[in-house]
Every structure is written in structure tokens, then in C-alpha cells.
């Protein structure tokens, strides 16, 4: 129990947007599915709090990166589905490249310090 708790990672500011946009790339999803997908695809490590998820969804919608419609879900329930807009796709591309840059940069720093410790 304790171990699992520790292995949970708090999301970096801004990463939630990226994850939400990314999880909509295969088609419209409702809020619950988005949070479930993020959790399962991260191997149970990333838990998106509903208190962060819904504000984020509504914020992204306001920024016109995603749009929403009410649809009937696979198990016959009404649910609000979010889908990427074209602006959202562009935004996703931007955020992705930024994320890649950050990762590369962080990796670079780590690798450098590793080398120094090694030498």
C-alpha cells in the first residue's frame, strides 16, 4: 500500500493538458474514460484527480482545443464526449515537441551528471 502510494507521481504543471489532448487523439472520449485511460496507460502510476481533470477539460474547451457533445456510451449511458479540434491537434503537436525537448534536456543533464559522478 505504502509502496504504491509512493510510486504515484504528481503531475507536472501543464502535463495534464498534454495527457488529455493525447488521449483524445484516437477519438472522442468522456471524462471518466480519459482518467481511466491515463491511469491504465501509465501502468497505474498517473492518477488524475477528478478535481484536476474536470477543471482542465473545461479550460481546454474554453481555449477551443477540444469540443464536447452528449452521446450515448457503449453501455447505453448518456455521457459528455470530448473531441480534439483542429486547433487542439496543433496545440498537441506543440506541447508534444515541448515535452520532448524537456525530456531531452532533463535526460541530457542527468546523463552529464552521471558521467561526472562516474569519472
Amino acid at each position: 500500500m505504502k509502496k504504491r502510494y509512493q510510486s504515484r507521481i504528481e503531475l507536472l504543471q501543464g502535463t495534464l493538458d498534454l495527457l488529455i489532448l493525447q488521449s483524445l487523439i484516437w477519438g472522442p472520449q468522456h471524462g471518466y474514460a480519459i482518467s481511466r485511460n491515463i491511469r491504465s496507460q501509465s501502468g497505474q502510476i498517473l492518477h488524475v484527480d477528478t478535481g484536476s481533470l474536470y477543471p482542465a477539460l473545461h479550460r481546454l474547451e474554453k481555449q477551443k482545443w477540444i469540443a464536447s457533445d452528449w452521446k450515448i456510451s457503449e453501455n447505453n449511458q448518456r455521457a459528455k464526449y470530448y473531441r480534439l479540434t483542429s486547433a487542439g491537434r496543433k496545440q498537441l503537436a506543440t506541447e508534444r515537441s515541448r515535452w520532448d525537448q524537456i525530456c531531452a534536456a532533463v535526460a541530457g543533464v542527468l546523463a552529464a551528471s552521471k558521467r561526472r559522478t562516474a569519472s
Binding site: 471524462g31 471518466y32 477528478t50 474536470y54 449511458q77
Partner: peptide, 17 residues
């Protein structure tokens, strides 16, 4: 009311799961 519905739908989906 839209938000209310969205939340209750989330709860139902989660319960269904």
C-alpha cells in the same frame, strides 16, 4: 446543469466499471 449531468454520468460510468 450540464456540469451536474457530466458529474453524475462520470459516477455512473465508474460504478458500472
Amino acid at each position: 446543469s450540464d456540469l451536474e449531468e457530466e458529474i453524475s454520468s462520470h459516477l455512473q460510468l465508474a460504478a458500472h466499471d
